[in-house]
């Protein structure tokens, strides 16, 4: 059995770890609230632009944008949103598992994948397992601006426009609530138009200057806003997952400390008992 002093050092070292994890838990909790608020703020834009795109799909326009036309898939692209830092439980791994499943299904049909990563962890993961990474961005921080993502999105949009990729998916974690985050794969391109109702009143927008330039810009904004929304949501998920992970780490440290304390007391008790019995037997011998 370990001696009293050894156990004491061990207890104090675990207590230090516990202080760190409980501090991280509190930091994550406050960051999560902020990230959640930001997520709410970005929703109106994403919803509005989705409405406009919905109207556009309904509108009886002569011009069909390539982003709206489905073509046979020869190569697919993924924009993978992951976290920059670890210590957030199984968040990233669950996401990657989902992504690999999807990518593998394509692979078995003879369709290779291209990846674009946002966040350090996704990039590191792809480095270790291979995979054609065409664009990558990390260190986006806790409050990314929509402009920071333009580059990565553009790489994928260009690839789609050139016909290098024929599908574009966004892979991110959806924030359901603090306890649940759901890995999600969303098709960005081509746009999935809903079935057209029959005999509807047909109309079209007045386009200024012309539909081509207008739609081009608008559809790019649409994809960007979806990606941005995904990133913001993923950040909220990261903080929530970290909070939970750190909470359970703190609880675990508490359990271990309790166990060690029992052990320490036992050791101390044994020591005292031994000393008493030595004194008693010594006195009896005299």
């Amino acid at each position: 059995m370990a001696s009293g002093k050894e156990i004491r050092t061990q207890i104090s070292s675990i207590q230090n770890t516990q202080k760190i994890t409980s501090a991280m838990e509190m930091v994550a909790a406050s960051k999560m609230r902020k990230a959640h608020d930001r997520m709410e703020l970005t929703r109106p834009y994403a919803r509005k632009i989705r409405d406009v795109i919905g109207y556009l799909a309904e509108a009886d326009s002569d011009y069909r944008h390539p982003f709206m036309e489905a073509r046979p898939a020869n190569r697919v692209g993924y924009i993978v949103v992951s976290t920059d830092r670890g210590l957030c439980g199984g968040l990233n791994n669950n996401l990657f598992k989902q992504m690999l499943k999807d990518s593998r299904a394509w692979h078995e049909k003879g369709v290779p994948s291209d990846f674009c990563t946002i966040g350090q962890k996704g990039s590191v993961f792809l480095n270790s397992v291979g995979g054609n990474k065409v664009a990558s961005q990390s260190q986006i921080g806790d409050r990314p601006s929509a402009e920071e993502l333009i580059g990565t999105v553009k790489v994928m949009l260009d690839a789609y426009r050139d016909g290098t990729i024929d599908r574009l998916y966004l892979v991110f974690n959806r924030f359901v609530n603090t306890m649940t985050q759901e890995p999600q794969i969303e098709q960005l391109l081509p746009l999935q138009a809903e079935a057209e109702p029959e005999g509807k009143y047909r109309w079209d927008y007045i386009y200024e200057p012309d539909p081509r330039t207008l739609l081009d810009g608008l559809l790019i904004r649409y994809v960007e806003s979806q990606v941005y929304q995904g990133v913001v949501e993923n950040i909220a998920c990261e903080q929530a997952a970290r909070m939970i992970a750190m909470k359970s780490a703190t609880d675990n440290a508490g359990d271990i400390i309790d166990d060690l304390k029992t052990e320490y007391n036992k050791a101390r008790q044994a020591n005292i008992t031994q000393e008493i019995s030595e004194i008693v037997s010594g006195a009896a011998a005299v």
């Binding site: 692979h107 990474k133 580059g151 553009k154």
Partner: peptide, 24 residues
């Protein structure tokens, strides 16, 4: 901005396979 993102990926991709090693 696009070029920057592309460069970062290329730097990390240097001498690495572009095929996903699914089993690994």
């Amino acid at each position: 901005a696009a070029k920057q993102a592309r460069d970062e990926a290329e730097r990390e991709m240097a001498n690495r396979s572009s095929e996903v090693d699914y089993s690994r």
